[in-house]
Amino acid sequence: MTAIRATNLTKRYGRTTAVAGLSFDVKAGQVTGFLGPNGAGKSTSMRMILGLDRPTSGTVTVDGRPYSKLEHPLRKIGALLDARAVHGGRSARNHLLAIAQSNAIPSSRVKEVLEMVGLGEVAGRRIGGFSLGMSQRLGIAAALLGDPEILLFDEPVNGLDPDGILWIRTLMRGLAAEGRTVFVSSHLMSEMAQTADHLIVIGRGALIADTSVAEFIGRSSQGYVRVRSPHLTEVASLLPDAELHHDHLRVTSRSPLEIGVLTAERGLALEELTFVQPTLEAAYMELTKDSLEYSS
């Protein structure tokens, strides 16, 4: 089941290419992370999914149809793009009511989603006075209004405190557990490691990887064995591919057991023999280092 399908999606602004021939499928019923450095084209892609920006070429469909052909789109897909993009003078309740009415969603649902995101107490207050965390919750309430099977969040944890981040993570996992599709963008690999099942990684508007989280780690960055020994030079001479890092060796071609056997045969004592798992963060840095728009 494909919830969202992008085919050769391209967006140019004048001479700048924001998205370049991007093709991917977002599978239904799981959390898909949409990952890339700032400026990689994540937000532009999301706006094109929602029919807000018109692709220069290529197509994108939601549940097999272009967004503009959905009769009551919010009942199919709910989105949070920019939590601050609301009229500050309106109350939370009226803000949501207007959105609900436009898609023939019963007004009783407004109270429900406000309770769901913990804003029931401030339903009548002007949105302008909300903190970023509250605005984020309101944006998520708006996305949930139509009880949609697909949810799309653009950088939902940006600027949130740890409580807020934890809340959003739990919410996304919960939504996926209910069988919904969650497509969430982030520039933080560590964030995706916590929540996503699948990753679509882009850089400079083009696809870098489309893979499960586990595969992603395995494919892009190998682990290594860290070896410490009082006889570092002798040990290194036994392992042709060993790299010397300060006070230890890094070995990628042999397992800890092989290294242990080899050094034991020579009677060389070891201080440490550890297999170091690659981190998602390292894998991500490795993959995107060529596609950062502004490298520091």
């Binding site: 929602l50 029919g51 919010l74 920019d82 609301v86 436009s102």
Partner: peptide
């Protein structure tokens, strides 16, 4: 123009793509 100033136009047009 108020919808464009606040950015709320994107919420509106996502709800009403026509």
């Amino acid at each position: 123009s108020g919808e464009y100033r606040t950015g709320a136009i994107r919420v509106t047009l996502a709800a009403v793509p026509d």
